[in-house]
Every structure is written in structure tokens, then in C-alpha cells.
Simulated assay, not measured.
Amino acid sequence: MLNLDNEYPFERIATDLQQTGISILPNAVGIEVLQKLEQRLVELGKDDFKQAGIGRQSAHETNSKIRRDKIHWLDRDNTLEATWLNYMDSLKTYLNRRLFMGLFSYEAHFAVYPPGAFYKKHVDAFKGKTNRILTTVLYLNQQWEDNDGGQLVVYDPNDHQQIFTQVLPTYGTLVTFLSDEFPHEVLEANKKRYSIAGWFRVNTSINHDIDPPA
């Protein structure tokens, strides 16, 4: 576990969430963690990734008009994957102490966007219906340029047609935002793009209704 007395970058994330509901932090993660995650990506084969879908349980389906990424869910049984889950446990502890968010659990997956892949505008949770509260995205792309595409486009929570910001998916950048506030999309990637998408939940549900995946 991390030393929570070392407040950066967690304090920066907490402050950003308080002020705007979103944090975009380059170089947020130490090189040791990043290298372990890269090592795991090298180990994984094509059969370890599944076509991502939309919706949950019986409503789950794949739709190539909406998203074309492939995913692999992280599991604590793998020590390399557990590196990221443990890091997020430390962030959860810090945010609960600092912002009293009541974060309870975390799930995450590797996402691979082959050239031509995208994910159309969506929200990760719907107000008043779900227990997904905070979204995280870590990028694992070295030497990524503007013309490589794959930008994360975040829309204004008060005007879903207005772009709030765009994020280039550069190595070690961590994006954290309120799941039900910010519509977002991933623009078409022009070369293979890697990330880890994850979600913190609170320990509650409404009519057993689970929110859709991002």
C-alpha cells in the first residue's frame, strides 16, 4: 500500500474533484507501476481480450457502431494486475478520508483500441439510478501524438453538445471524474491505443439496477 502521508498526486485529484468534478493529471503514476502494467499487456494474448459491449446482464450486447474496443478485466489473482488495483485501493482510502465519498469497491479493465476503433458519446452512470460514482482512466501509450487520434473528449455536464476538454492518451496520464456528470467519447484511434478504465462504486443499489459499463 502507498504512504498516504505523501499527498501528491492524491491531494491534487481530490482538489480537482472538489473544484470541477474532473481531474486530468499527467505523470500521475510512478514508473514502477506503469512498467508492471506494460509487462502484463505483453503477456496477454489475443484470446485474453473480448469485444467490449454495452449494457448489463441480459441487456448486454456488442454494437460496433457504438464501440469497437476490446477489454480484459483485471483480477487480483494476477500479481501484475493487482499492482493497479492496489494503487486504486490507496486512492479510495485517501478520497474517502479527504472527501467523505463513501467509495466501497473498484473494478477495472485493460482496453485496447485497434486502429479504427472508437467509443461514441456516453455516460458511465445515470443520476439517481446506480452505484457507480467515480471513473478513472489511465493511459499506457508511449510517444503518442495528436495525429495518432484516440483523444478522450469530455463534454460539459450542463451542455452535452459543448466540449469541456480533450485529453491526449499519453503515457502515465490519469483522468478521474464523477461518473454521472460528464458525457464523454473516445475518438477514432489511428494506431493501437492502450488504457485501463475503472470505476469506484458505493455500497448501495436501487432496485438491483446496475449501471452500464463505460
Score class of each variant (00 low, 15 high):
13 I>Q: 00
17 L>D: 04
20 T>F: 10
21 G>E: 02
28 A>D: 06
31 I>F: 14
33 V>T: 14
37 L>N: 01
48 D>N: 12
50 K>D: 12
53 G>T: 09
54 I>T: 04
56 R>T: 00
57 Q>K: 15
57 Q>T: 13
58 S>H: 11
59 A>Q: 14
60 H>R: 14
61 E>G: 14
61 E>R: 15
65 K>Q: 15
67 R>T: 00
67 R>A: 00
68 R>D: 04
70 K>R: 15
72 H>F: 06
74 L>W: 07
77 D>N: 12
78 N>R: 13
78 N>L: 12
78 N>I: 13
79 T>N: 11
84 W>C: 03
85 L>D: 02
90 S>V: 03
90 S>A: 11
92 K>Y: 05
93 T>S: 13
94 Y>T: 02
99 L>K: 08
100 F>G: 06
100 F>S: 14
103 L>G: 09
103 L>F: 06
104 F>M: 10
107 E>L: 13
109 H>V: 05
113 Y>G: 09
114 P>R: 08
114 P>Y: 10
119 Y>F: 12
123 V>M: 13
128 G>H: 09
129 K>E: 11
130 T>A: 14
137 V>I: 13
137 V>P: 12
137 V>D: 00
139 Y>P: 05
139 Y>M: 01
140 L>V: 03
141 N>R: 07
142 Q>N: 05
144 W>F: 08
145 E>F: 12
145 E>P: 00
146 D>N: 06
148 D>T: 02
149 G>Q: 00
152 L>I: 08
154 V>E: 04
158 N>D: 15
159 D>G: 03
160 H>C: 04
160 H>V: 05
164 F>T: 09
166 Q>A: 04
166 Q>T: 13
168 L>V: 05
168 L>N: 11
172 G>S: 08
173 T>D: 00
174 L>R: 12
178 L>M: 15
187 L>F: 02
194 Y>I: 08
196 I>T: 02
196 I>Q: 03
199 W>E: 02
200 F>I: 02
202 V>D: 03
204 T>G: 15
209 D>T: 07
209 D>H: 08
210 I>R: 07
